[in-house]
Deep mutational scan, measured.
Amino acid sequence: NKASVVANQLIPINTALTLIMMKAEVVTPMGIPAEEIPKLVGMQVNRAVPLGTTLMPDKVKNYE
């Protein structure tokens, strides 16, 4: 099972992601793969992401 990116804290809307905000966890359904964490640093979320929520591609601005 592959790990996904999960919010390590509440991430407010329009916040630029940092390493400390994210952790890798095996979750269902799968979100953004954990190996993409370095790519996500500096990207902004387009909505608030509660603690423990899986980061889905549609929650990150300009994620492809």
Rank of each mutant, 00 (worst) to 15 (best):
N1Q: 14
N1E: 13
N1V: 14
N1P: 14
K2D: 09
K2M: 12
A3R: 11
A3S: 09
A3M: 11
A3C: 12
S4L: 03
S4N: 01
S4V: 01
S4A: 03
V5Y: 06
V5Q: 03
V5I: 14
V5L: 04
V6W: 05
V6K: 02
V6I: 12
V6N: 01
V6L: 06
V6T: 05
A7V: 06
A7H: 03
A7L: 04
A7G: 03
A7K: 06
A7P: 01
A7E: 01
N8K: 11
N8W: 07
N8T: 15
N8D: 07
N8I: 08
Q9D: 04
Q9H: 04
Q9E: 09
L10F: 15
I11S: 02
I11H: 01
I11G: 00
I11Q: 01
P12L: 09
P12D: 06
P12I: 07
N14W: 15
N14F: 11
N14A: 07
N14P: 00
N14T: 05
T15P: 01
A16K: 13
L17H: 00
L17G: 01
L17M: 11
L17E: 00
T18R: 09
T18E: 10
T18W: 06
T18H: 03
L19S: 07
L19V: 09
I20F: 12
M21W: 05
M22F: 07
M22Y: 06
M22G: 04
A24E: 07
A24R: 03
A24H: 04
A24D: 05
A24W: 08
A24C: 08
A24S: 12
A24M: 07
E25Y: 10
V26R: 11
V27L: 03
V27E: 00
V27W: 06
T28K: 11
T28Q: 12
T28I: 13
T28A: 12
T28V: 12
P29R: 03
P29T: 05
P29K: 04
M30R: 12
G31L: 05
G31I: 04
G31Q: 05
G31K: 05
P33H: 06
P33N: 08
P33L: 10
P33R: 09
A34W: 07
A34N: 03
E35A: 13
E35G: 11
E36G: 02
E36W: 10
E36D: 12
I37T: 01
I37R: 01
I37G: 01
I37P: 02
I37S: 02
I37E: 02
P38H: 10
K39Q: 11
K39R: 14
K39V: 11
K39Y: 14
L40C: 06
L40I: 07
L40W: 01
L40K: 02
L40R: 02
V41R: 04
G42E: 03
M43R: 08
M43W: 02
Q44M: 13
Q44Y: 15
Q44G: 05
Q44H: 11
V45E: 04
V45N: 00
V45R: 02
V45K: 00
N46K: 11
N46P: 02
R47L: 10
R47H: 13
R47C: 15
R47A: 15
R47P: 06
A48L: 12
A48N: 13
A48R: 11
A48P: 12
A48G: 06
A48I: 11
A48C: 13
V49C: 09
V49A: 03
P50R: 08
P50Q: 10
L51P: 14
L51N: 12
L51F: 14
L51H: 13
L51R: 15
L51V: 13
L51S: 13
L51E: 15
G52T: 01
G52R: 02
T53H: 13
T53G: 12
T54W: 04
T54D: 04
T54A: 07
T54K: 03
L55G: 01
L55M: 05
M56G: 07
M56L: 08
M56C: 10
M56H: 10
M56V: 06
M56F: 12
P57Y: 09
P57S: 06
P57I: 04
P57D: 03
D58S: 10
D58R: 05
D58I: 05
K59R: 15
K59L: 15
V60F: 06
K61Y: 10
K61N: 10
K61M: 12
N62A: 08
N62Y: 11
N62L: 08
N62S: 08
N62C: 13
Y63R: 00
Y63Q: 01
E64Y: 13
E64F: 13
E64P: 13
E64Q: 15
E64N: 14
E64I: 15
